[in-house]
Amino acid sequence: MARTTLGLIAVFALIAAACVAFGAYFSYVTLLNAHRSVIEARFGIAAERVADVAEQAASLGIALPAQSTLTSLLDREARVEPAIRSMDLADERGIVLFSSDPARLGIAEAQDGGRGLTRPVRNDLNEVVGHVVVRYDPQILAAGAAALGNDLKVIALPALIGAGVATIVIGLLLAALLRRAVRRAADPGAWPPAARAALAAAERVHNEVAGKSRSGKSPPGKSPSGKSARGPAESRRRA
C-alpha cells in the first residue's frame, strides 16, 4: 500500500514536471517563431522594394531579364543592411537573373540549398514571373534562438524542479492525512460526524426494536464492538 502511494506520488510528480517542460518548450517555439517573423519583416522591406520596382518595369512592358538596372538596385539594397549576404532576382523557374553577388548569376535557387526570404514578382495579370530572394546571415536567427533558449532555460528548470518537488510534498502530505484518517476510522468513536450520527441512529433503532421484542423494555444498547452506544455529541466529546 505504501509502495503504491509512493509510486503514485512519483508518477504524478513526473507528470507535473513533464507538463512544465512541455509548456516551456512550446513557449520557446512560440517565441522563436515571433522572433523569426520580426527578423523576416526587417529583411522583407528590402525585398518588397525591389519587387515593386521590377513589377513597375514589367507593367511598362520590360521583361524581367531585360531589367538590367536591377543589379545596381539589388546591390544598393543589400548594402543598406549589413546582415544581408546577397539579394537575387530569379525568374519563375528559379534561375538567378540579377544578384548583388555576381558569383550567383545563372545558378538555380532551388539547387542552392541555402535559406532565404522570398517575395514574388507579379505581372499585370497577377501571374508570378519571378522572385526576389534575400539571403541573410543565419547567425542572426541562431543567436536569437540561443538567447531565447538560455532565457527560458533559466526560468524553466526551477519551474520544472519546483513543480515536481511541490507535487511530491503535497502528495506525501495527502498520503499522511489519508493514513491518519484510516487509523482514526478503526475506532468508531473517532469516525467523521456523519458516520457517528448514522451509528448512533442505528444503535438507537436497534435498541428500541430489540427492547420491544423483549416485552417492551429498552435495554441499554451495545455497539457491535461491545462498546456502549453513544450519541454524536458524546462521540464528539470523546474525539
Partner: peptide, 25 residues
C-alpha cells in the same frame, strides 16, 4: 494540487517568456 502547481509554474514560465520577448523582440 497538480492543477494549482502547474498553473503557478506555467505563470512563472509566462513571466519568463515576457521578459525574453522584451529582450529579443
Amino acid at each position: 494540487a497538480i492543477v494549482l502547481i502547474l498553473c503557478s509554474a506555467l505563470a512563472f514560465i509566462g513571466w519568463g517568456a515576457e521578459r525574453a520577448a522584451q529582450r529579443t523582440i
